[in-house]
């Protein structure tokens, strides 16, 4: 898969996970590795970038006597996931058209 496409997809995957509820680094990591190959050093810049883009926010909460950083999706992040799903449906239509042309 194209690297840039993969990164774009990872962004949406992260946001989609956060759409279900707030989460933290290692939990996101475990959930993502089931779907797509990703390393910790890849995930962190994605989280940072999404935060800078205003698509998620971070907050700290105490866990077992230490602070853990949690991530929460913003309205902009939800909008991006919705946009992706809309685009993907359009891509599916185009994909179906391409397959139809090939069969003719």
């Amino acid at each position: 898969m194209d690297v840039q496409m993969k990164k774009g997809l990872l962004d949406v995957c992260v946001l989609a996970l956060l759409k279900k509820g707030d989460s933290y680094g290692s939990q996101l990591m475990i959930a993502l590795t089931d779907v797509i190959e990703v390393s910790e050093s890849t995930l962190y810049p994605i989280l940072k970038r999404l935060e800078q883009a205003g698509q998620l926010v971070t907050y700290s909460s105490e866990h077992n006597g230490r602070l853990r950083r949690y991530y929460r999706i913003t309205g902009s992040g939800i909008e991006r996931v919705n946009d992706f799903e809309r685009d993907w449906r359009e891509m599916e239509r185009i994909h179906a058209f391409i397959q139809g042309v090939r069969r003719r």
Binding site: Q4, G8, D11, S41, T42, P45, R49, L50
Partner: peptide, 14 residues
């Protein structure tokens, strides 16, 4: 991190 960060530097790309 350096490599990924170069990609993400202009956050507006996304």
């Amino acid at each position: 991190y350096r490599r990924e960060n170069r990609y993400s530097e202009p956050p507006i790309d996304d």
